[in-house]
Simulated assay, not measured.
Amino acid sequence: MNLTPKDGFPYYFELAKNNSVQFIFKEITTIETLQNISEEKARFRYRPDKWNIKQVVGHITDHERIKMYRAFQLSRNESVELWGYDQESLVKNGRFNELTIKSLLTDFFNVRQSSISFIDTLSEHQLNIKGMARQFEITLEEFLRSIVGHEKHHIKIIQEKYQLE
């Protein structure tokens, strides 16, 4: 199947593969890809209307923060719709360009460590709790998998369009 980001959760599930959520969260693709990038390169935009790499890293971190809170709610059986958010507003109002790429990657790493700590506390029963995310009924495990799929989506774009070499 040839899915795109417009397909939503199924696209992100596909990118996250079928490994355990514990395993996929420990593969920190963002840091591995960007740990040696220069500040100059981190400000690069492949088109004027696209985010630079610092903004992408900030967005990935914001996304994980938001989605992990929602995952926490679902894991506690709160009846909540796993709604979206305005990513453009969050990036616009973030301070990503004022921060170094190193500090943005450190923040991402810290958020990821918190996510892993939370995931390690979940039971098999909790991973199978279902909730609504837009028009999809998904399990907590699938919701968690979509977070890493989202990260992989952005790293793939960075590798293809941001001239890292």
Rank of each mutant, 00 (worst) to 15 (best):
residue 1 M to W: 05
residue 1 M to V: 04
residue 1 M to Y: 08
residue 4 T to R: 03
residue 5 P to M: 05
residue 10 P to W: 03
residue 12 Y to A: 09
residue 13 F to E: 08
residue 14 E to Q: 15
residue 15 L to C: 04
residue 15 L to N: 08
residue 18 N to P: 08
residue 19 N to S: 14
residue 19 N to P: 00
residue 19 N to L: 12
residue 21 V to H: 04
residue 21 V to P: 01
residue 23 F to I: 14
residue 26 K to T: 13
residue 27 E to M: 12
residue 27 E to R: 14
residue 28 I to V: 14
residue 31 I to K: 05
residue 32 E to Q: 14
residue 36 N to W: 12
residue 37 I to F: 10
residue 39 E to H: 01
residue 39 E to V: 03
residue 40 E to I: 11
residue 40 E to H: 03
residue 40 E to T: 12
residue 41 K to M: 07
residue 41 K to W: 09
residue 41 K to L: 12
residue 42 A to I: 06
residue 43 R to A: 15
residue 44 F to T: 09
residue 45 R to T: 14
residue 45 R to N: 11
residue 49 D to C: 02
residue 51 W to V: 01
residue 52 N to S: 04
residue 52 N to W: 10
residue 54 K to V: 11
residue 56 V to C: 06
residue 56 V to Q: 04
residue 57 V to C: 02
residue 58 G to F: 09
residue 58 G to W: 08
residue 59 H to V: 03
residue 59 H to Y: 06
residue 60 I to D: 02
residue 60 I to A: 02
residue 61 T to V: 03
residue 63 H to Q: 08
residue 63 H to S: 15
residue 66 I to W: 09
residue 68 M to P: 00
residue 69 Y to N: 09
residue 70 R to F: 07
residue 71 A to V: 03
residue 72 F to W: 09
residue 73 Q to F: 13
residue 73 Q to E: 13
residue 76 R to C: 10
residue 77 N to L: 05
residue 81 E to V: 14
residue 84 G to V: 04
residue 85 Y to P: 07
residue 87 Q to V: 11
residue 88 E to G: 04
residue 88 E to F: 01
residue 89 S to Y: 14
residue 91 V to T: 05
residue 94 G to I: 00
residue 94 G to L: 00
residue 97 N to A: 10
residue 104 L to Q: 06
residue 104 L to G: 03
residue 105 L to H: 05
residue 106 T to E: 12
residue 107 D to N: 08
residue 107 D to T: 13
residue 107 D to Y: 06
residue 109 F to Q: 08
residue 109 F to V: 00
residue 109 F to C: 02
residue 115 S to D: 05
residue 115 S to H: 08
residue 119 I to Y: 02
residue 120 D to Y: 07
residue 120 D to C: 02
residue 121 T to A: 00
residue 122 L to F: 02
residue 125 H to C: 00
residue 127 L to Y: 02
residue 127 L to I: 02
residue 127 L to W: 04
residue 128 N to G: 09
residue 129 I to A: 00
residue 130 K to W: 06
residue 130 K to N: 14
residue 130 K to F: 13
residue 131 G to H: 06
residue 132 M to K: 15
residue 132 M to I: 14
residue 133 A to M: 12
residue 135 Q to H: 13
residue 135 Q to P: 09
residue 135 Q to C: 07
residue 136 F to H: 14
residue 136 F to Q: 13
residue 137 E to F: 10
residue 139 T to K: 03
residue 140 L to I: 07
residue 141 E to R: 07
residue 141 E to C: 05
residue 141 E to A: 10
residue 142 E to N: 09
residue 144 L to I: 15
residue 144 L to T: 08
residue 145 R to H: 04
residue 147 I to H: 06
residue 147 I to Y: 04
residue 150 H to D: 10
residue 153 H to Q: 09
residue 155 I to F: 05
residue 155 I to R: 05
residue 155 I to P: 11
residue 156 K to L: 13
residue 157 I to V: 15
residue 157 I to N: 10
residue 158 I to A: 11
residue 160 E to M: 03
residue 163 Q to L: 11
residue 165 E to N: 10
